[in-house]
């Protein structure tokens, strides 16, 4: 009898998970200044909460000496904050591929600006802005491996990041030239670099601009570049006012040339 109760309780718990979380009511009423409620909430709080990378040089990187997080995406976050609040006031949260989705869902961050590639599948779960940066997937190998291009990687192991779309891009390209490759997924970029150094993988493959931050004397980035990836700013479904504002801001930055200036400032093109 007791055991039956335990089983019943666990079933109920699971049922709660399946059904309970899908039905939070959303409000899209206008705030006091005619702003959408989600934007007004940020304004009332007085700070924009953004999830950023801290391990991608030039995009979002925390300098271990100064403890300061800087990069292209941080500047972009500041520009959006200026649009909403009138000042550059942001509160950053470090995210990884694994945490950036849940952090948006829970409302811990308003936006995620973290080399987040836009895919059709992901658009079902989050609002994505138009692309603010486009980058191709590239390959990094050890100099002494003698690997010249994708065809030399036949039968080799490629290290990729979890939640990165590079796996799909490389797989498609490899299928075309009938090269057989296997993928090993790691949760952070430094781990993939460690795996490349120790020979656990033969190739480190992520978006080119991220890869360039890990280049050293023993490694080389190959010229091949695969399916361009669009980076977008993610926000919660339902916060549509915020999503529109982000899109408008990006469009404005694009036409004014501010965006290109930022990209050049961080040496990304």
């Amino acid at each position: 009898m007791k055991k039956f109760g335990i089983i019943l309780t666990s079933l109920l718990l699971v049922a709660g998970l399946v059904t309970g979380c899908g039905s939070t009511p959303t409000t899209s009423d206008k705030g006091t200044d005619g702003l959408p409620a989600d934007v007004q909430a940020i304004k009332d709080r007085g700070v924009l909460k953004v999830g950023v990378k801290v391990d991608v040089p030039n995009f979002g990187y925390k300098d271990p000496k100064t403890e300061e997080i800087t990069g292209f995406e941080i500047d972009l976050a500041k520009a959006i904050s200026k649009e909403i609040l009138g000042t550059e006031k942001i509160e950053t949260t470090a995210v990884t591929a694994k945490t950036r989705g849940p952090l948006v869902d829970s409302g811990d961050v308003d936006l995620v600006i973290a080399t987040f590639t836009v895919t059709e599948e992901r658009k079902k779960s989050y609002n994505f802005s138009d692309a603010y940066f486009t980058d191709g997937v590239k390959l990094m190998v050890k100099k002494d491996s003698g690997i010249q291009g994708l065809k030399d990687l036949n039968g080799k192991k490629i290290g990729v990041a979890q939640s990165a779309t590079s796996k799909k891009a490389i797989q498609e390209a490899a299928d075309k030239i009938e090269a057989k490759v296997t993928f090993m997924e790691f949760s952070t970029y430094p781990e993939i670099k460690a795996a490349l150094d120790s020979g656990r993988v033969d190739c480190f493959s992520v978006d080119g601009s991220i890869l360039s931050g890990y280049l050293d004397d023993t490694t080389v980035i190959l010229a091949d570049s695969f399916s361009p990836q669009d980076y977008g700013i993610a926000s919660k479904k339902g916060n549509d006012g915020l999503a529109k504002l982000v899109n408008d801001t990006i469009a404005k930055q694009k036409t004014s040339g501010e965006l290109d200036k930022m990209i050049q400032k961080w040496g990304l093109k």
Partner: peptide, 11 residues
């Protein structure tokens, strides 16, 4: 509003 446990994700 799409929750983390939306049905299409289970599918």
């Amino acid at each position: 509003m799409v929750g983390p446990f939306a049905w299409f994700k289970w599918e």
